[in-house]
Amino acid sequence: MPVDARTLTLQRPRNLKAALAMLAKEPTLTPIAGCTDVLVGLHFGTSDTRQFIDLWSLDELRGITSKPILRIGALTTYTEIIASPLVQKRVPMLVAAAREIGGAQIQNRGTLGGNIANASPAGDTLPVLAAAGALIVLRSASGERRVSFARFYTGYRTSVRQPDELITAIEIPAIDGRQWWRKVGTRRAQAISKIMMAGVRSPADHLRQGYGGQEAGRHSCKVRIAIGSVAPTVVLAEAAAAVLSQGGAIGDAQAALRKEIAPIDDLRSTGDYRQQVAANLLAAFWKDTE
């Protein structure tokens, strides 16, 4: 049953400072950004929150800058990410992921901060941010802190974000090497992911090839691989990445990967299917970034 809108309240702060003060006083308020998750939950009666605080007009949370580190405001929409020359140049895998989220209407409203805070295991930007080694900037009335993406989630739909904190921005350090992204869904548009993988392969690998494999055995390249929808939260496949970094065979890396993930059966796919596709994606990543 849809929730009657008359039972819902919305606080509308004029700026970030006012928003943080309201949250300090009433930490039970639920922030709203583009509402592409929030209004679905209210319409289908799956959400029990009734008191909201509006972030949509807080311009301090918008914009993309790069001095010196790439900083994407939490309220930045997918459409803005896709159109940004800065993001296209530095994090093409984020642009690729944003292009496949929903359709144009969802991309025009859905925000990066909302995708992170919503904390769905199927959130498409999450593997990208994990593979990129992103930092999440959190702010409350009492100050600001940065949390590395790998430490942000603590379990299924839970994170280290405190109720009085907002995500204000996402910072992405310079990424060396090739970036890779693949989403597997039921159709090309408007489909929630069955599984998705982001990967980064650093140029050290090309160096190794240049030396005719002399450096085999040493860390010959740096690899970061992150997978979504295969566990309660996004998984950084460190064992599989280590095998590949050290020049191991792709089969060994796939075996390592299978142990790192724990996909479940749900209405979108079976766990077995996801195991197999994760291994296939790993091979595709390795081949495409050669």
């Binding site: 919305l10 709203i32 583009g34 509402c35 592409t36 209004l39 679905v40 319409h43 459409t79 929903g102 359709g103 144009a104 209407q105 969802i106 025009n108 409203r109 408007q190």
Partner: peptide, 21 residues
């Protein structure tokens, strides 16, 4: 937000009006 039947323009941008407060 799945079907787009409720699409309107807000400041020239297409949005699903079922997902806009």
């Amino acid at each position: 937000g799945e079907c787009g039947a409720c699409t309107v323009l807000v400041d020239g941008v297409a949005v699903d009006s079922c997902l806009v407060p």
